[in-house]
Amino acid sequence: MSESHYRHMKDLPSTHLLGAGTAMCAGCGGLQAVHEVYDVLGEKTVFVNAAGCMTLLSVYPFTPFRGSWLYTSMASAPAGAQGVRDALDLLVAKGRLPANDDLQVVVLTGDGAAYGMGLSSTSGAIDRGLDFIYLCYDNEGYANTGQQSSPATPHAAHTATDSGVLGHPGFKKDLFGIWVANRPAYAATVIGTEPLDLARKIERAKDMRGPRLILALAPCPSGWGFDPGEMAEIGRLAVRSGVWPLKEYDDGRVVHTEIRRPRVPVEEYLVRQERFRHLFEPERNDAELSAIQARIDAYWECVD
């Protein structure tokens, strides 16, 4: 493995490729991750988008991209990536496009598509060894429609569709695990609030070939219920509490890129979000809080 170009925060780009002026909410953790990823990938990128919050990045006649963009549908962005990738390969092979005009193909999807409706087309793209990056901003719900529960919603979280005292009855699906089980070229979890870790992973993924997952937790002020200014702190707590493990899969092995000891109690992460307030008020739900903590501890016990 070659030495990373990104050793210190000062190595990160200080000018940014992604244009300002988009319709994303103030304090959007997804947009933070996307702009950091874009800075490392560079403008020779075509984003193939699945329906979600980020679909509104490009609203006629405004686009933040210096490279290219194609909106497809909620379920089939990886198939769109297949068409674009194959067509670019054909154009280069048949001499109709100079090789230096080629592009990196990146699916940009939310968790609603990635963890559910989009799994069939994603699975197909992995089966075929499609040369693409699959960038999922995971805000743990159907955020664009008002934060209904998605298959990425964590257990006990309040959503627009799970507003009872118990919150969401399901458990967050392991998308990273689904990808790893299919032996992709690369898979990594990232978060915009850990930009060095993110930049190093994108730097590695960028020069690989084949299916590559970048799964970014995207703290969502509107959907999770916190003040936009707290987004960075929520993101850091997600990592420090161990809720969001930072890891990568490469060459058949999963490696954690950040192992915190001791971890911050998960309560400190949960208590700052409106979606978990029912665990603390009107009275503390100790049983649920211990269960959440225990699941996190159990995960990390297996890491060593």
């Binding site: 020779k44 075509v46 006629y60 686009t63 490279g67 290219s68 674009v84 005009d101 080629d102 592009l103």
Partner: peptide, 12 residues
């Protein structure tokens, strides 16, 4: 789509 000619297609 090409590196030298950015285009956003099928936008909202």
């Amino acid at each position: 789509f090409s590196a030298s000619r950015p285009v956003s297609q099928a936008v909202a």
